[in-house]
Simulated scan of single mutants.
Amino acid sequence: MNNVPVSARDLAIRLKTVARELEVDPAEVDLAVMINGLRFPLTRKSFQVDEYGTLEISLAESDSDIPGLKQIQALVIERLRQIRDEGFSEQHDDAHDRGELAIAAACYAEEAFCQLRDPDRLPEISEIVPQLWPWEPSWWRPSLDARRNLVKAGALILAAIGVIDRANEIELKEPSHG
């Protein structure tokens, strides 16, 4: 699979070719993106053509019957932000293989719990670094929005799962010393 951008013109040509081969009207072809076996239907709102004629597809705008898709997208977008803006690559995450990512996620989830339970609590309370926070206090950056803190927790959980999965893959590749 390549990551070469597809121009809107190329996509239109491909769509017409497929429609002709299937002997259907191109206007009647439903477009969708398949990601890890999940089908994401695309609507006209999903498309945008940039100044170079490259087709940009936004799944955030797509209509989907997948329950929780909007929430899953929020977690993935936050995880990508952590990688891009904070530099928290897989290699960085793999250095935290003793549960630090999981407990950090729990800290953000607990903050959200406290905010939901007591919506009138003072915002300054959120700035108190949790006792179980695994890193320097300056890295404790809660939001005043409970949903946002849950998204941060979810993205940290994704990172923690990635650490476990990569460690398991390495273990499976190593010859057994039995």
Results as ranks from 00 to 15, higher is better:
2 N>F: 08
7 S>T: 15
10 D>Q: 15
10 D>F: 09
12 A>H: 12
15 L>F: 04
16 K>R: 14
16 K>M: 13
18 V>G: 03
19 A>Q: 02
20 R>C: 07
20 R>N: 08
23 E>C: 08
24 V>T: 08
26 P>G: 02
26 P>E: 06
27 A>L: 08
27 A>I: 04
29 V>D: 02
29 V>W: 01
30 D>E: 13
30 D>Q: 12
30 D>R: 11
33 V>Y: 09
34 M>C: 07
35 I>R: 11
36 N>D: 14
36 N>T: 06
37 G>I: 01
37 G>Y: 03
39 R>K: 10
40 F>Q: 06
42 L>S: 02
43 T>R: 10
44 R>H: 09
45 K>C: 07
47 F>D: 03
48 Q>Y: 14
50 D>F: 01
53 G>R: 05
54 T>L: 13
55 L>T: 03
57 I>D: 01
60 A>R: 14
68 G>V: 04
70 K>R: 15
71 Q>W: 11
72 I>M: 09
75 L>S: 03
75 L>C: 06
77 I>Y: 08
78 E>H: 06
84 R>K: 14
85 D>A: 13
88 F>W: 14
89 S>A: 07
91 Q>D: 15
92 H>Y: 12
93 D>K: 02
94 D>R: 11
94 D>L: 12
95 A>V: 11
99 G>H: 01
100 E>T: 03
101 L>K: 03
107 C>I: 00
109 A>Q: 06
110 E>P: 02
111 E>Y: 02
114 C>A: 12
115 Q>G: 04
115 Q>W: 04
115 Q>K: 12
119 P>A: 05
120 D>N: 11
121 R>I: 00
123 P>V: 05
124 E>G: 10
124 E>V: 08
124 E>R: 10
129 V>Y: 01
129 V>S: 04
130 P>T: 07
133 W>L: 06
135 W>Y: 10
136 E>A: 15
138 S>K: 13
140 W>R: 05
141 R>H: 08
141 R>D: 13
142 P>Y: 03
142 P>N: 07
145 D>M: 02
145 D>G: 03
146 A>N: 03
148 R>G: 00
153 A>S: 14
154 G>I: 02
155 A>E: 00
155 A>M: 05
156 L>K: 00
158 L>H: 04
159 A>S: 13
160 A>K: 04
161 I>K: 13
161 I>A: 15
161 I>R: 14
162 G>V: 05
164 I>V: 15
164 I>G: 07
166 R>Q: 08
171 E>W: 05
175 P>N: 14
177 H>D: 14
177 H>L: 14
178 G>F: 09
